[in-house]
C-alpha cells in the first residue's frame, strides 16, 4: 500500500515530458495490444493488435536510443519498420489463404490442428 502515493505521483505527471513518459505510453500501448490479442476473436483484428504491440516496442526503442544519445538504436528501429512491412504482407496473405480454405476468420472455428 506504500506504493499507492507514488502511483498517484505517476498519475499526476509533471509537466516536463522525459523518458519515463514515453515508456509509460509504450507500456500502455503494449498492454492494450496484448488485451486485444487475448479478447478479440477476429483474426484480422488480432493481427492489428499485434501491430500495436510492435509499435509500442518501437516507441520504447526510439525513446531509449534518444536517451542514450547514439544513432544505432534509431537504425535498428528503421530495420524493424522494414521487416514489419514484410511481416504484415506475408501474414495477411496467410489469412487470405486460410479464409479460402475454411471460409471463416473467427479463431474459434479454426480448429484444423485439433486432435
Amino acid at each position: 500500500m506504500s506504493a499507492l502515493p507514488s502511483l498517484l505521483a505517476v498519475a499526476s505527471l509533471p509537466a516536463e515530458a522525459g523518458l519515463n513518459h514515453y515508456l509509460l505510453v509504450s507500456a500502455l500501448l503494449f498492454a492494450i495490444g496484448f488485451f486485444g490479442v487475448l479478447l478479440r476473436k477476429n483474426t484480422l483484428v488480432i493481427y492489428m493488435c499485434l501491430e500495436l504491440m510492435l509499435n509500442a516496442s518501437a516507441l520504447a526503442a526510439v525513446a531509449f536510443s534518444r536517451h542514450n544519445g547514439t544513432i544505432d538504436g534509431l537504425v535498428l528501429v528503421f530495420f524493424i519498420i522494414t521487416v514489419a512491412a514484410a511481416e504484415v504482407a506475408v501474414g495477411l496473405a496467410i489469412i487470405v489463404a486460410l479464409f479460402r480454405l475454411r471460409h471463416t476468420v473467427q479463431v474459434e472455428e479454426l480448429t484444423l490442428l485439433k486432435n
Binding site: 507514488s6 505517476v10 522525459g18 519515463n20 515508456l23 507500456a27 534518444r66
Partner: peptide, 13 residues
C-alpha cells in the same frame, strides 16, 4: 506500473 512509480526515476530524455 508500480515498479515504474517506485524506482523508475530515470533522467529526462
Amino acid at each position: 506500473l508500480l515498479s515504474l512509480a517506485e524506482r523508475g526515476r530515470l533522467p529526462g530524455s
